[in-house]
Amino acid sequence: MARAIDALRHGWPITLGSGTVLLPVETGVAVEANASRMLISCARAATLKLANQRDAAAPHAPVIIRAAEPLSLQNARPIADPALDLAHPMKGPFKAEPIIWEDDAVAAMELARLAGILPAFLVNPDNAGEAEFVHSGDLGDWSDTVQLTLATRARLPVSAQTDAEIIAFRSANDMREHVALIIGEQSADREPLVRLHSECLTGDVLGSLKCDCGPQLDAALHAMADETESRGWGILLYMRQEGRGIGLVNKLRAYNLQDQGFDTVDANQRLGLPDEARDFRVAARMLELLGVQSIKLMTNNPKKVDALSSAGIIISERVQHQLPDNPHNRRYLATKRDRSGHLLT
């Protein structure tokens, strides 16, 4: 899987178990490649008026479209990228076709997400070059959290609490390294206050006002520090799942679409990407490796509660974690509440 993801980021074709060859449209380097068919997401197909309302209910699902003339990478990119819609308003004509290799198509869309590229491929293109083979079933093994192991730990005093320890986790299958920050002294006699925090470069590091990630991170650490005043402790699980799992580049593309008037959910779907692609099983595995089975979970997101509970973590209490909004993130927070089910007032 790692080789397939690397191939897509380099712009090389992949071939799946069905024998289908797929060349990534965004990164493809085979300038002479051309194909009559493309694999895109259902949401993108809906934008092109090629999917009905029932199909569009699964926006990340794959769709095959056939063009009247062979497509090169150059004229396929406006089909793949909604940022080019205004510059290239006329596309087609296209015809949607059934997919007889559904599992491979679904796997290809997921591989594109993991590679951080737009989910769009030329299908069985001529002059694409040698393809990297991947079996769609390998995705399950690649994402199995049992592969995650505890790598190392070190003392790390932080501004919220000097009595803190950082613990790094990694998997042989994944270059992303997750970390846990233990605030206070770990104790089997007391449930820790736990916060699952997904990486957000713009909010955590740059102080973006478009989201509430930075303030949530700071407030969680200070809440855990407060726990230590009564001999309690806390765990911040910092997961490398930027942009709710779609990656930094695609998150910034979504920001551009938000500036055009789309909300968070619609912007992701317009890119052909899921609005929620994080794997919270990673957090459950991190807790397991720390020897923690029962927690107080600081979250407004019921999906986190459900995911950890399904993985065997006992959640004795859900602790609300809502912070004041600002003019720049007010719509973002409203979308969280109204469309993503977050428990916000």
Rank of each mutant, 00 (worst) to 15 (best):
D141Q: 04
G137V: 02
L206T: 03
T228N: 07
A131G: 04
R195H: 06
G129C: 00
G140Y: 01
N173Q: 08
N127A: 06
S198F: 05
I167Q: 12
I166D: 07
V146Q: 11
W142E: 15
C213R: 01
G140N: 11
H197Q: 10
D126Q: 15
L201I: 10
C200F: 12
L217G: 08
H197G: 05
V205D: 01
A164E: 05
E132K: 12
L148D: 04
G214D: 07
N173E: 09
S187I: 03
A131R: 07
L139G: 08
G184R: 08
V158G: 03
N127W: 09
T145A: 12
Q186H: 07
E227W: 11
D163C: 00
L221V: 06
R153Q: 10
L139W: 01
M224W: 06
D226G: 06
L217H: 11
A128V: 03
R190D: 15
D189V: 04
W142T: 15
L139Y: 06
V179G: 00
E227Y: 12
E199M: 10
I167K: 08
V123W: 02
E132P: 01
G207M: 02
I183Q: 04
D212A: 10
N127D: 09
C200P: 03
F133P: 15
R176I: 05
D212S: 09
M224F: 09
A219V: 12
L193P: 03
D218A: 11
G207Y: 00
S208N: 06
S208R: 03
L150M: 12
L148P: 00
D218I: 11
P215C: 08
S187N: 15
S208V: 03
D141T: 04
T152Y: 04
R170A: 04
I167N: 04
V158P: 01
L156M: 15
D218Q: 10
R195D: 07
G129E: 01
D189G: 03
A180G: 05
G203N: 07
G184F: 09
A154Q: 04
P192N: 06
T145L: 01
A154F: 02
A172Y: 01
P157H: 10
H197I: 11
S171K: 10
D141P: 00
L221D: 07
E191Y: 13
G140S: 11
R176P: 01
L156T: 08
A154E: 01
G137W: 00
R170D: 14
L221K: 08
P125G: 08
D218L: 10
L193Y: 02
L139E: 06
D218W: 00
G214N: 14
L150K: 14
H135D: 09
